[in-house]
Amino acid sequence: MPNFFDLNVHAYPETEVPVDDMLRIAKRYGYAGIAITNHDDTGKEEKEVLFTPISNFAFRGVEIRAKSVSELKRRIKLHYGQVPLLAVHGGNEVINEAALKDSRVDLLAHPCGENVEGEVSHVLVRYAAENSVAIDFNFNPIIRSKRGDRARILWKMRENLKLVRKYKALAIITSNARSIYDLRAPREIIALASLFGMKKEEAVHALSAVPEGVLKKKWKKKTEVEII
């Protein structure tokens, strides 16, 4: 069995769930590691908790939520080199483009928005492949929505998958969990991935090898990054 990772999980202090509970459930579900990526703009006290080392099982990360490109650049400069995983809160097309053009970013979380309202164009996916920024397939909206909404989300994901296959960009599957009840075991996530045409091998790759490589900065150029 490969080692499975979930690189977008929110815990205390952004949500009320303690980090320990999250880790225990993730371990029970068979994950080899999860990354706690709280948003960086939620509060002051967060910073103290965020930057204390958690354990070998959990990786520290940060999800940057910016309103403009200049703000995004400033935040990336602030957090770059401080945390093992630098994610950007996607959704806005301008922010998406700026994040995917920046090779310091590791992961673009939910590029179509948290409820999959937007779109990702082929140009952006090409940038992602060039700068080896992983594109996130967020499974939380599939679990939460029903009927018409779910059909739209699956359709969008199918289109994204087509682009990712075409340009050989890094695809990653995350749960975007905010409580222990949002987490799903790896085998369940692989079954969910088959709903929008992702093959089993692809899903396993997006859950194990790609996240591990992203944490180790495997695909980044040596001059650009320093491994923490």
Partner: peptide, 23 residues
């Protein structure tokens, strides 16, 4: 089996109580 597994994973609440199912 895989189809049913996906359907089980889609369940997130029962009468407003949050749940999570694992096979």
């Amino acid at each position: 089996v895989e189809e049913v597994r996906a359907a089980l994973a889609c369940i997130h609440s029962v009468n407003e109580a949050r749940i999570g199912i694992r096979v």
